[in-house]
Computed example of a mutant assay.
Amino acid sequence: MLNRPMESVRDSVLRRRTLLAGMGAFALSACSSKPAQPTTPAVEQPGIRLGVLQVTDTAPLFVAQREGIFEKHGLQPKFVTMELTGDQRIDLEHGVADVTFDSWVTIFLNVADGADWVVLGEAYQAGPRSTGLLVSPSSRLRSVNDLAGKRIGVNNLRGLGVLLTNSVLATNGMKPSDVQYVEMPFDKIADSVRKGEVSAGWLVEPYLTRAQLDVGCVLLADTAVGATADFPQSGYACARSFARKYPGTVRAFQRVLAEAQSRALDRSTVEAVLPDYVQVSKSVAQLMNLGTYPTTTLAIRPQRVVDLMYTQQFLKSRINVEERMAAGTT
């Protein structure tokens, strides 16, 4: 009689242990029956070649390099400095770069000429006074209308500067034919303005601030206002064949870009890389006007560029940017 309660307690404990063990086995079975989560594609080509220009737009890439963001996502990029002057026609199939950075104008002109490229991401949007027309401190020009019949220095006769300046001219009732564009490197424009070889020059940062500090140039007109306010300035593209052959590499680059662009929202982070990678002084880096580094890629933004290019007859037909978006862009 005295042993029965003890046996009853032991039996009860055993039954509870058996029940818990059964429940654990069921839970494990249920977990194992769930569909497998999608895995991140392998990076097929870690040593991706990135075509870059020494302009403010590319600062996030150098932030990514400095902070180990590329390595974090399995990439070991090789930076290739591209030409900043003239109308560039880039061979992404057999050339020196796999992915290229450039102004949207140049990217879409390449596409219009038959380059089968896809958009990987946005780089930069112009901000107030981040791009504009400069004149010498002794210039008698006081308004955009005073540019009639004058020479304007630009880095590319078929580039972003001409597109933006044409828009400013139109706002003031003028035509592109009312001025004469003269092509020269960015780093020569301010001096040409000072010498009177051109009456005005179009510049982006950091060249804009450098011209004001070093040469004393004066801003005549902001070219990122009105119809071109917050204008999508530049982006990244690769050949469609590259995106198809190396989808994991492309996705890795897009992840790097998104993280780096987010880091670049902190101005001090951008200022820290500019002296070493874009070759500007610390004072210029601190004083220059910055635009915006988009953290997502939306076709509607570069489509603005296409539409303006078509209106100004840079393009014979419109390009549908949505159809040019690589997998992974949103």
Score class of each variant (00 low, 15 high):
317 S>F: 13
115 A>I: 05
173 G>V: 12
28 L>A: 14
161 G>F: 07
296 T>G: 09
253 F>A: 03
173 G>N: 11
285 A>Y: 10
216 G>F: 07
310 Y>R: 13
301 R>H: 13
106 T>K: 00
239 A>K: 09
314 F>C: 05
100 T>V: 12
289 N>P: 04
190 A>V: 10
177 S>C: 06
106 T>G: 09
220 L>I: 07
195 K>D: 09
298 L>S: 15
173 G>K: 09
285 A>M: 10
10 R>V: 15
48 I>S: 03
292 T>C: 13
44 E>Q: 12
251 R>Y: 06
193 V>A: 02
222 D>N: 14
190 A>M: 04
293 Y>H: 11
222 D>S: 09
288 M>S: 13
114 G>I: 06
150 K>W: 00
59 A>I: 07
325 M>H: 03
248 G>Y: 09
132 G>C: 04
149 G>K: 11
99 V>K: 03
61 L>F: 07
103 S>V: 07
73 H>L: 14
81 T>D: 14
58 T>D: 00
304 R>N: 06
202 W>P: 00
169 L>F: 11
139 S>V: 09
139 S>Q: 12
320 N>Y: 01
207 Y>C: 06
328 G>R: 01
46 P>K: 09
295 T>E: 09
288 M>N: 04
274 L>S: 06
110 N>M: 04
157 L>D: 05
201 G>K: 05
254 Q>T: 07
261 Q>M: 08
248 G>M: 08
188 K>Q: 10
153 G>V: 11
102 D>Q: 03
141 L>Q: 04
263 R>K: 07
175 K>L: 15
285 A>F: 09
100 T>A: 13
247 P>H: 07
161 G>P: 01
285 A>K: 03
33 S>W: 15
165 T>G: 04
310 Y>E: 01
129 R>F: 12
243 A>R: 02
182 V>G: 02
247 P>K: 01
181 Y>P: 06
113 D>A: 15
75 L>V: 11
118 V>D: 01
28 L>D: 11
147 L>S: 01
39 T>R: 10
49 R>M: 04
246 Y>Q: 09
268 S>L: 12
255 R>Q: 14
94 H>F: 13
208 L>H: 04
271 E>T: 05
19 L>D: 00
127 G>R: 10
306 V>Y: 10
69 I>D: 03
89 R>D: 10
316 K>R: 14
1 M>K: 11
20 L>Q: 01
319 I>G: 01
301 R>K: 11
60 P>T: 03
192 S>D: 04
42 A>Y: 09
289 N>V: 05
18 T>V: 13
183 E>L: 01
206 P>Y: 00
235 G>C: 01
247 P>E: 05
315 L>G: 08
242 F>T: 04
87 D>F: 12
258 A>V: 02
84 L>Y: 08
210 R>L: 15
108 F>C: 02
212 Q>A: 06
226 G>V: 10
232 P>K: 02
35 P>H: 06
99 V>N: 00
9 V>Q: 12
286 Q>R: 15
240 R>T: 15
293 Y>S: 02
186 F>P: 00
69 I>E: 03
322 E>T: 09
40 T>R: 13
33 S>H: 05
198 V>L: 08
53 L>E: 10
308 L>T: 08
244 R>Q: 14
168 V>A: 13
167 S>I: 04
104 W>P: 05
104 W>K: 05
159 G>T: 06
